[in-house]
Write a protein that binds this DNA or RNA. Structure first.
Length: 616
RNA sequence: GGCCCCAUAGUCUAGAGGCCUAGGACGCCGGACCCUCAUUCCGGAAACAGCGGUUCGAAUCCGCUUGGGGCUACCA
């Protein structure tokens, strides 16, 4: 498949410096336009910057971005190699890494450099042509169960990145391994994503999406075609080694204290031998011939250049014995075929990225930009798993967490907004999101903060919205009065989850089934019964049932009886709600209404006098 | 074991060599308000993993150590 951008890339030869438009130390909006000289780019940049060598960071210059047909970047401190262009000013004070675009895309920085150059740039990782930016990202979950918070966060960041850059967010279902499929899991994942407010532009459920199919299992023909291609060019080979044999090999290596790797037994079989064994029907896999010298550098948008010695990789399997692809083979192909520009995924994939790069290289595919997000860990610092309680989005929903709050919380795990504000809805997040504020460190999720966040949403959302959200959690009958909406408004202050809110609201629709024991001991004396009786009588006659008139009654009775108002309030609350805590008494009673209030007071009086109180 | 990533309070984080006496948030403790609880407000305790190096100056750059995590499959 032809690289759709190669022509464009070759037509731009630009050097650009001083990209940080805010910094007073930078040289401003200076552009260096220089025709790209192969092998001499570093020198010409250096000349433009007025230094003698390309790998020195001139003062006041934060970065240089180059565009050309072929760039690669050497490690920190290495000198530019001929035929390549490399530089790295990390040694300088700004923590800037190299930046470059081309067939070997690199775009690295720690702070301050836009991932998308402002104008006149063509990059593969982030293509901008004449002010139009092309960003295509994807989230590729394996449908092996519910949507977990780690995956949700990855999806969220992809979504935000795409929207921020006006790009496209692709959802691809990574159902490569049929044996691990969980029924309905794809639907659940999609549902989970949607409930968080994440939307995608292309995916298995989007009809007419241009790069389909979006289920890896439906792309088999393509994977086989490319495996055959690699076989025919000799970049891959058939391996007839049995699992038992491989197991023995691994053990042998381990006993010698060496890393287990494939020995290459089938690497150089003759064509005749291969055909003979195939004819005999011997089961075999396909392995990719990986480079055994040199190093492979992953230009990671978040971490900078990560270098791997090619010798640590063996010829890994790309097609299983059933001739279905292995993940590392399929992703590379699918990401390429779907024209993905930025691969943003969890850090657990970083170590396998070189393998995918081998696939890209063998197939002559241009590389996307990579960004590896820090992991989300359980409170005990281990990988999130079942035993850590709620980790699935669906579980949080069931526990009464508002999904918008969960999304907001997840947003703050590994990323922070420039202005330090913590309550951001998705729309605001899209506006300010950037990969360069992503943390490098794994984050531990904290339920306490999630609950706080949830409460924030509980208070900030419209009352009607909360009313809708809490309905599924109400498992008791709700009458005409008091008005549901008003009850929500009064109760939400005391609830951190929707479950708690539903519980708080119950008292408005059902008289107490029991009275709080400590409260009874404190507030339900014989005298209290007498006071409640008086109050019940007075309230029954009250003409204007509102806050101020209620206060007036209580003030009057407290004066008549010579007791504090509190001595009336607490027994009333206990009588009316069965609890010692809750909304302000007058707000509560105003809303509850005369009939229910008086009735509950009378019931309490009777029960105090008959000592039928502590029953559950 | 090998390779890779990472390291600021219990947790999420700010931090781009001097703006740091290290800032914010959750949680915790104390106080104010109040009819209780909650909200709100005010205050407090709490961190640059350790050791070297570079520098006039290091949380920040480099190295080592330690610790944590990931990968090392015909899993994804």
């Amino acid at each position: 498949m032809l690289n759709p951008w190669s022509r464009l890339v070759r037509s731009f030869h630009i050097f650009y410096g001083g990209m940080s438009d805010e910094s007073t130390r930078c040289t401003g909006d200076t552009l260096w336009r220089d025709p790209l000289i192969r092998g001499g780019a570093g020198v010409s940049v250096a000349r433009a910057l007025g230094t003698s060598r390309g790998n020195e960071r001139p003062r006041g210059i934060r970065c240089v971005v180059g565009v050309g047909s072929r760039f690669s970047h050497s490690r920190l401190g290495h000198r530019p190699q001929s035929g390549h262009w490399s530089y790295d000013w990390r040694a300088g004070s700004a923590g800037i890494h190299s930046v470059g675009f081309g067939q070997n895309v690199g775009c690295v920085r720690r702070r301050g450099i836009p991932l998308i150059p402002p104008r006149g740039f063509v990059t593969l990782g982030a293509m901008t042509v004449g002010g139009i930016t092309v960003v295509r990202v994807r989230y590729a979950p394996s449908p092996t169960g519910a949507l977990h918070i780690g995956g949700a966060r990855t999806a969220l960041f992809n979504f935000l990145f795409a929207r921020h850059h006006g790009g496209t967010f692709v959802l691809r279902v990574e159902d490569t391994d049929q044996t691990r499929q969980v029924p309905d899991s794809e639907a659940k994942m999609l549902q989970g994503l949607k409930s968080l407010g994440i939307r995608w532009d292309e995916g298995p459920d989007i009809v007419g999406a241009p790069y389909g199919p979006y289920r890896v299992s439906e792309r088999l023909a393509r994977h086989r075609e490319l495996a055959e291609e690699l076989l025919s060019t000799g970049q891959a080979y058939r391996c007839f080694c049995t699992p038992e044999q491989l197991q023995r090999d691994r053990e042998a290596f381990q006993q010698q204290g060496l890393p287990p790797r494939y020995v290459g037994r089938c690497r150089d079989l003759t064509r005749e031998e291969v055909e003979a064994r195939r004819a005999r029907g011997e089961r075999h896999v396909v392995r990719l011939k990986t480079p055994q010298t040199g190093e492979t550098i992953v230009h990671d948008l978040i971490r900078g250049d990560v270098t791997f010695d090619n010798r640590v990789f063996d010829d890994f399997v790309i097609m299983k014995a059933d001739f279905t692809p292995v993940y590392n083979f399929a992703v590379a192909i699918d990401d390429h075929d779907m024209a993905i520009t930025h691969v943003i995924r969890g850090e657990e994939h970083l170590s396998n990225t070189p393998k995918q790069i081998f696939v890209y290289e063998a197939l002559h595919f241009p590389l996307p930009a990579f960004a590896h997000l820090p992991m989300i860990l359980a409170p005990d610092r281990s990988k999130v798993s079942k035993r850590h309680g709620a980790t699935a989005v669906e579980e949080y929903r069931e526990q009464g967490i508002i999904l918008a709050a969960l999304a907001n919380y997840l947003l703050l795990l590994g990323w922070s907004p420039p202005d330090g504000r913590e309550i951001l809805d998705l729309e605001e997040a899209v506006r300010v999101f950037s990969l360069d504020r992503v943390q490098h460190t794994a984050a531990i999720y904290d339920l306490k903060k999630l609950e706080w966040m949830n409460h924030q949403y509980m208070m900030r959302l419209e009352v009607d919205e909360i009313a809708e959200l809490v309905k599924p959690f109400i498992r008791y009958s709700v009458g005409e009065a008091p008005p549901f909406r008003d009850v929500v408004a009064l109760s939400r202050e005391r609830a951190t989850t929707l479950v708690q809110l539903a519980d708080q609201m119950r008292m408005f629709y059902h008289p107490p089934e029991s009275y709080d024991a400590a409260g009874v001991a404190k507030h339900f004396s014989e005298e209290a019964a007498a006071r409640l009786e008086i109050l019940a009588a007075r309230l029954a006659e009250l003409e204007e049932w509102d806050h101020d008139h209620l206060v007036a009654i209580y003030d009057a009775v407290s004066a008549e009886l010579g007791v504090k108002r509190a001595a009336l309030i607490h027994p009333t609350r206990l009588a009316v709600t069965g609890r010692t805590v809750g909304p302000g008494l007058f707000e509560l009673v105003t809303l509850l209404g005369r009939e229910a209030t008086v009735e509950r007071l009378k019931t309490a009086v009777a029960r105090i006098r008959s000592h039928e109180l502590a029953l559950g």
